[in-house]
């Protein structure tokens, strides 16, 4: 019973965090064709800024979470303008600039915080009990924040004017220009939101698991897998792919140990990719 609940909550948390980070990556990818390999370090940066605000400045956790989101999201606007926009359509230079961002941020964090494993204080304490089952409040809160944000993003993309414009840009860039949509402003907005979401996930995962300068590499790989399995341009697909990945990562370790479970997960994903190269839910893009 304990194990089932622990696995299930872990599955939900991992899935929602993967999806949160992947959304921002998918926005940039589907709108401007930018493969943002720096999205992982942005997630990592979120965790460390959150930690700094809480421990060094002594801010309230929730205030720190909010501030972190704003700081990293604003940083995203800077990235979009100076690092991505000049190279739209140039795959090679986008990859290079992303490596530059990764090296700079990882080295910076390394110098300031060191390589030791840190963690944020939990966002909630105590244990919730119903009958024989018990779940820590931290898990509930982490998942609740993730779920609320995911609902909010879905609402934003499907129901608001800006969200519709984001979709328009990703489906037909020239068509979007001709409707007078301000493509630069909307992509900046999408990067703002995407980096903000990654920062929140960084803080939450930094409390749920731990912080390390290389946590971004791990997340980046998850995000790439998720986006490819989902296919481009489908938010629903990202949700399903996120659940698949979260399930693999939370259930497989129970069946096979350690690295073997990672290898199995990868094997499953490679097979999925070979069956449906364009992803399962989106439409193929030419790059």
């Amino acid at each position: 019973m304990e194990l089932i609940i622990a696995t299930l909550t872990n599955l939900l948390i991992l899935s929602s965090m993967y999806i949160l980070v992947a959304l921002g990556f998918a926005f940039l990818f589907s709108m401007l064709g930018i493969l943002n390999l720096a999205h992982g370090v942005i997630y990592m940066l979120g965790g460390y800024i959150g930690l700094t605000l809480i421990t060094a400045l002594g801010l309230n956790q929730w205030l720190a979470l909010l501030l972190t989101t704003l700081i990293v999201a604003t940083f995203g606007i800077f990235l979009e303008k100076y690092c991505f926009r000049p190279f739209v359509g140039d795959f090679n230079r986008i990859v290079m600039i992303c490596v530059v961002i990764t090296v700079v941020l990882q080295t910076g964090v390394n110098i300031i915080a060191g390589t030791q494993i840190l963690s944020l204080p939990p966002f909630a304490e105590g244990i919730f009990k119903i009958g024989p089952a018990s779940v820590s409040y931290e898990r509930i809160v982490t998942f609740a924040i993730g779920a609320v944000l995911l609902l909010a993003v879905t609402w934003f993309v499907n129901r608001t004017k800006w969200g519709q414009q984001m979709q328009a840009i990703s489906q037909d860039l020239e068509g979007a220009y001709l409707q007078g949509i301000n493509v630069h402003r909307i992509s900046a907005l999408a990067t703002f939101i995407g980096c903000g979401l990654a920062a929140i996930a960084g803080c939450l995962m930094g409390a749920y698991l731990c912080l390390g300068p290389f946590m971004g590499d791990f997340m980046l790989v998850k995000v790439l897998m998720l986006t490819i399995i989902a296919g481009v341009g489908s938010i629903g697909g990202i949700f399903i792919a996120g659940l698949i990945l979260g399930s693999l990562d939370s259930v497989l370790p129970l069946l096979v140990s350690g690295a073997a479970s990672n290898a199995t997960a990868i094997a499953i994903l490679v097979v999925l990719l070979l069956i449906r190269p364009q992803g399962f839910f989106g439409h193929e893009v030419e790059l």
Binding site: Q171, D172, G175, H283
Partner: peptide, 15 residues
């Protein structure tokens, strides 16, 4: 035409 193929007709018009 450059329509937005995965959005509804109404969304296209509103865009």
């Amino acid at each position: 035409r450059h329509l937005f193929p995965y959005l509804s007709v109404l969304s296209n018009l509103k865009l």
